[in-house]
Write a protein that binds this DNA or RNA. Sequence first.
DNA 1: CGTGGCATGTATCAAGGATACAAGGCATCT
DNA 2: AGATGCCTTGTATCCTTGATACATGCCACG
Lengths: 247, 247
Amino acid sequence: MPRRSRDRDGATPAESDTAAGREQTRRRVIEAAIDLLEREGRDAVTTRAVAVAAGLQPPAIYRLFGDKDGLLDAVAEHGFAAFIAAKHVDPDPQDPIEDLRAGWDLAVEFGLTNPALYTLMYSEPTRATSAAFKAGMEILMGRVRRLAAGGWLRVDEEFAAVIIHATGRGAVLTWLSLPEDRRDPALLTTLRETMIAAVTDRQPAVQEAGPAGAARALRAALPEQTTLSDAERHLLREWLDRLAADG
Amino acid sequence: MPRRSRDRDGATPAESDTAAGREQTRRRVIEAAIDLLEREGRDAVTTRAVAVAAGLQPPAIYRLFGDKDGLLDAVAEHGFAAFIAAKHVDPDPQDPIEDLRAGWDLAVEFGLTNPALYTLMYSEPTRATSAAFKAGMEILMGRVRRLAAGGWLRVDEEFAAVIIHATGRGAVLTWLSLPEDRRDPALLTTLRETMIAAVTDRQPAVQEAGPAGAARALRAALPEQTTLSDAERHLLREWLDRLAADG
DNA sequence: CGTGGCATGTATCAAGGATACAAGGCATCT
DNA sequence: AGATGCCTTGTATCCTTGATACATGCCACG
């Protein structure tokens, strides 16, 4: 609700000045909040800390955003919009499936590079009504619509959108939960291709069965056997790790 | 760290009494907290409210759980354990893939019937260190190990576990974000089957269970690969012969 | 120059996490 | 038995933080 210092007519110079100033203050506050969020974590984002960082008094936050939730919504929206704006999206892609891949990757990348922001937007189910959340869904629906138009979808549009969203969300949150040394990029591509297979007609190439599967089976069954000595088993395990990883 | 009123010997009656009493108080507090959580939401779970509901003073919470986070961890663990205990899990399933389906469904069901608890456990990535989180992972790893032993896994065990976890997490959180009228159960089964396809092979890599069967399968698949040196392969072959003969 | 409306700034409230400190009970030791 | 010391219980209180009431003062308008 922008305030009005006049009842009618256009904006006076002063009015547009203050309106623009207000908008600029909003930006400054939001950016201060994002900075705090990514640098010191969610709990550091208190109305006071944000106010100080933006150089104004605590009550100003409430005048600009209503309440803290309003601030957080604005933060999510701004952060998301900034990320999307930085990556220019192809408005008319040649290959809609490749476009879907790119979009999924983009969404995941957003989560991985802005973990605190992503968590803010997607961790609690109740935040699904926020503007940023909806904006993401809108972009996704556009992609899905193009897929549908090209006849690539094997499921309903809405259904596809939810599947895509769910795999991405699971991928990001799970990735962020993993300790650094267990973060295998292949996880993301696997989940992505899994999603592609679920939503489109294109089936992934069936990888022929090498020794990896049998190696994994033997590795899992290894503790039960008594034929080999400890040392032998130790070395065998190492080889099996290599064979399993090779597939 | 349970307190000790004696240096040696077993527990005196009084000691076991107070220890048991303490344990019982803990339970009462946890159950009060779960009740508050599911009935009035996450924000209603204040140390004061929980204390009042359990009939004691606020500081008692800190003596029992250290801090609020400790309380929430205990709540998550208790809630999760109670759910798992209510569903008895087949310790030796016939069909490990069907078992994986059942396990995934169980995890998702937990999320859908205990949304507040689930959100508590799985919303913030930083909570991956909690006991309840780890307990869930343990159960999952057991299932994955059986799949591996049966030769069904098409990817590494850890890899599979993460994929399974991620799809389940995405499924639950997305489901909870959807308005009621858009919650299609087919979403869950689709995501589940997608996950199954990503993680398992249609044909198991081994014919017979146990180390011997796996060894035979690996021996059959071995000649073509180049991951191991000649000498390593030679020795491996000998061990596989012994393992195969052992069954 | 007076007046009214709106933004700014100060002071404060209320809720909640956390803790200090005193009071009391119980077992051990002499 | 009485003294002693530790551990538990209970009370009061602190500090942060979200939120708001109220006064002050600026500025345009008449």
